[in-house]
Simulated scan of single mutants.
Amino acid sequence: MKHQAIAPEPHPPAAEFSLRLSSTPRGARLARTLAVQQLTEWCDIPYDSDSARTVALVTAELASNAITHGHLSGRDFRLTLLLLPHALRIEVTDTRPERLPPQPPPAPGPTDAGSGRGLLLIDAYANRWGCTVRDAYTKTVWAEVTFPEGYGGGGGRR
């Protein structure tokens, strides 16, 4: 199973990007855009590639879950990107540590037609994902997306 509730720390990243964003739909859209922009800058992966689209989808779902299920009024979420040797680790930290993602994510039923697929998408597109609670105030849901051969932490510019 790809999901891990508590995961070992990733290898030391080749590069790191971190930014607080508003817990709004606009903040989630910005997270998606910034993740793809950072990926293309770090790794020379084309903006319209499958890898970039996967990073966009996974980031959008993590950010959407943070603003939908992890939001407290007046509190932002944090997007952190870590460039690993052969993957991009996407971390979204929100302010609701008591609301952990289900393990494994349930398949949506017929009454969930418009929602409930976010974690299933993350599970399908990310190589690994999980959730880490490090303190009483936040939780981080993370996912790792691997790159095609020739790209990644050692193959692109930084």
Rank of each mutant, 00 (worst) to 15 (best):
102 P>K: 13
141 V>H: 01
36 V>N: 01
63 A>C: 07
104 P>D: 11
50 D>N: 05
60 A>Y: 04
19 L>D: 00
113 A>I: 12
5 A>M: 10
16 E>I: 11
118 G>P: 04
114 G>C: 05
76 D>S: 15
28 A>D: 01
92 V>A: 03
47 Y>L: 13
151 Y>W: 10
65 N>A: 09
135 D>I: 07
30 L>N: 03
89 R>Y: 04
150 G>L: 10
78 R>S: 11
57 L>S: 12
1 M>F: 07
152 G>E: 02
14 A>E: 04
80 T>E: 12
146 T>K: 05
38 Q>T: 15
58 V>E: 03
44 D>T: 07
144 E>W: 03
74 G>H: 09
26 R>V: 12
26 R>T: 12
57 L>C: 11
10 P>I: 04
67 I>A: 03
45 I>T: 15
82 L>E: 13
5 A>F: 10
25 P>C: 05
111 T>R: 10
120 L>H: 04
91 E>Q: 15
34 L>P: 01
139 K>I: 01
22 S>P: 07
111 T>V: 10
65 N>G: 06
84 L>V: 02
45 I>L: 10
54 T>M: 06
87 A>P: 01
154 G>V: 12
14 A>P: 00
53 R>Q: 14
60 A>K: 04
97 P>R: 07
111 T>I: 05
21 L>C: 05
119 L>V: 05
20 R>M: 11
65 N>D: 06
126 A>C: 11
33 T>R: 13
116 G>N: 09
27 G>W: 07
30 L>W: 01
98 E>K: 08
20 R>C: 08
106 P>V: 08
75 R>Y: 06
47 Y>C: 01
104 P>N: 10
102 P>S: 14
143 A>L: 04
148 P>H: 11
36 V>Y: 04
83 L>Y: 05
16 E>P: 00
17 F>W: 11
10 P>C: 05
128 R>I: 00
142 W>M: 06
137 Y>I: 01
95 T>A: 15
156 G>Q: 07
18 S>K: 13
53 R>A: 14
84 L>M: 12
140 T>D: 04
